Simulated assay, not measured.
Amino acid sequence: MRSSVQVEKFGVSWEGVYGYVQAIRRGDTIYLSGQLAHDGERLVAPAPVDAEGRVTDFGNMGEQMRQTYANAAELLKRFGASLDDVVEETVYTLDIDAAFAAAGPVRKEAYGRPDPQVTSTLLAVSRLAFPEQLVEVSFTARV
């Protein structure tokens, strides 16, 4: 027997352009697509970029991370879950040093404990979806 499937979206334009959902639940597992720092169509704390679209300052990393975790929490809530149910996250960033410095405090705040009980992988990438984007995080939760 096939288990029921629930999907969630934010209703932002890039969901339709790229063709995906923000989250899907299959059985007792919830998979979240890479989350980023947005509030609707607006990127939160966009990084400054030069004429070629390259980031010139990574100082907004913490603020972008905070919004990213808030967006993930919002999606999980729609499934009756929370960040407490996350078992794995993958953090994609343009700058490992800036992400590592911001991640400790932001993650501990988001997960509400000094030792988040979640596996985590931090990866440097050459580009993310938007030029002003510094970080993206995907999540897997079990309920």
Rank of each mutant, 00 (worst) to 15 (best):
S13C: 10
D84Q: 14
E8I: 09
T56M: 11
E132Q: 15
A98T: 03
P105W: 06
T119G: 15
V87C: 11
A99M: 07
V125P: 02
E52D: 14
V12K: 07
A47I: 05
A98M: 03
A23E: 01
E74C: 09
M65T: 05
V7Q: 12
A102Y: 02
A81S: 14
R142L: 12
L134F: 08
L123D: 08
G27S: 09
I24C: 12
K77A: 15
E74A: 15
Y31F: 15
S4T: 11
L123T: 12
Y69N: 02
S4K: 10
L76T: 00
N60Y: 04
P114I: 09
L75K: 03
V49R: 00
G62N: 02
E136V: 14
Q117S: 13
V17C: 05
V106A: 00
P48R: 08
Q117I: 05
K108E: 13
E41F: 08
V91I: 15
E41Q: 13
G62L: 02
V5M: 14
S3R: 10
D85R: 11
S126R: 12
S126L: 08
D85Y: 06
G112M: 05
V125T: 14
L75I: 10
S3D: 10
L83A: 05
A103D: 08
A47H: 00
V91Y: 00
R78C: 04
A98G: 05
T121I: 13
V106Y: 01
A70N: 07
L94C: 05
V86H: 04
E8K: 15
P105Y: 06
S13E: 12
E41G: 08
S4L: 11
F10A: 07
E63G: 01
V49C: 11
D95H: 14
R66S: 14
R2T: 13
Y20S: 10
E15I: 07
K108Q: 15
E15S: 08
V118G: 04
L43M: 11
L75R: 03
L43N: 02
E89G: 00
A103C: 10
Y92G: 00
E89Q: 13
V55S: 00
R113Q: 14
L123V: 15
T56N: 11
T140A: 13
R42F: 03
D95I: 01
A103M: 11
A102N: 06
A98P: 01
Y31T: 07
V87W: 05
V49T: 14
L123Q: 12
N60A: 14
E109C: 09
R26G: 14
N60G: 11
T56Y: 11
